[in-house]
Amino acid sequence: MAEKRTKLAELDPVWTRIKGEAEAAVRAEPLLGGLIHSSILHHGSVENALAFRISLKLSSGEMSEQLLREIADHAYESDPALGQSARADIVAVFDRDPACHRFLQPILFFKGYQAIQAYRVGHWLWTEGRHDLAYFFQMRISEVFGVDIHPAARIGKGIMIDHAHSIVIGETAVVGDNVSMLHSVTLGGTGKEEEDRHPKIGDGVLIGAGAKVLGNIHVGHCSRIAAGSVVLEDVPPCTTVAGVPARIVGEAGCAQPSIMMDQVIQRSV
């Protein structure tokens, strides 16, 4: 298994680029050599590096780094989709965040990216029936990163969470592929209802800062939710909604809102 993963890593353009950027970063800033070597250059794949970073960040007096590392390594070995999603998320952050100039940055410095990868391990634990351990991951992710995602929530790949302060995603929420959201976004319920009670977000959606999407509603693909909006009803595909409560104010403005990241609303006269 280890030999196979090493061969795959040699054919992995994302990992190859990360290693090259890491070597250049050490030359440019030797004081970060210890961090970069331990986090990147001592590992043979994206999965190995992420298992190390996740265990380092989430460890505490309640659970050791070594034990968390074993859990994360096992998750990545058991489910190749975790590593595939991690790579897609790196590319998403690089493409959409103007503050991201290297593939290296999300793994080392961006808490939104790190929180999503830790959530993915927690979600794997949830699907394996290890709910209490998944809840532990949720608790530590919230404490460390300020991002509270229920481990049962289903989140696609190519996700970009910018700044990532105060993100809340509920138990029955579903987030599609290639979604972008900014800080203080809530995908929550509307009260004490049980069972299926959280939003379903389509592919390619852009959710602005401070937006609240509440209830078992559907947000159509390639739509935009303006910053500060409170969405309580279904959103048709390829539209823009804004306001409290949110109303349709126009078309999405482009084919891929989550990639263009254009949050300027052109209201109709």
Rank of each mutant, 00 (worst) to 15 (best):
W124D: 02
V175E: 08
P257C: 04
P236M: 12
G146M: 06
M261F: 00
P237D: 14
R224C: 15
G243L: 13
P98C: 09
A242C: 09
K111V: 10
G189Q: 06
D262F: 00
H74G: 01
A2I: 15
H43R: 08
V205T: 13
V205M: 13
S78A: 15
A152S: 15
E70F: 00
I161L: 15
G170S: 09
S180R: 07
V205E: 13
E70K: 07
S180I: 07
S223A: 15
E251C: 11
A226I: 10
E23F: 00
A226Y: 12
D12L: 04
V235W: 10
I169E: 06
M160N: 14
H150V: 09
K111E: 11
M139Y: 09
F145T: 08
D12E: 03
L68C: 00
R53A: 07
I248Y: 09
G215V: 12
I265F: 09
T186K: 01
Q263I: 01
L232W: 06
K19V: 10
R120W: 09
I217H: 13
A173H: 10
E143G: 08
I116V: 15
M160A: 14
H198Y: 07
H37C: 01
R267Q: 12
Y135P: 00
Q114Y: 11
A153F: 09
Q266M: 03
E10W: 00
A252S: 15
L68Y: 02
W124M: 02
A255N: 03
G44L: 00
N216D: 12
I259H: 03
S59F: 03
Q117Y: 04
I18C: 01
V174E: 14
S142G: 15
L82G: 14
E193I: 03
V219N: 12
A118V: 01
A227Y: 10
L206T: 06
C100P: 02
E47N: 01
I54P: 04
A118L: 01
F110K: 08
H218F: 14
I169D: 06
A51M: 01
T190V: 15
A211W: 08
R154M: 07
G112T: 05
V269C: 13
G156W: 10
V144R: 12
K4Q: 15
F52I: 00
E233A: 14
D79V: 05
R53I: 11
L133D: 04
G250L: 12
R140H: 02
A28N: 02
P257K: 03
K4F: 14
L206P: 06
A164I: 09
R154D: 06
L11E: 15
V144A: 07
M260H: 09
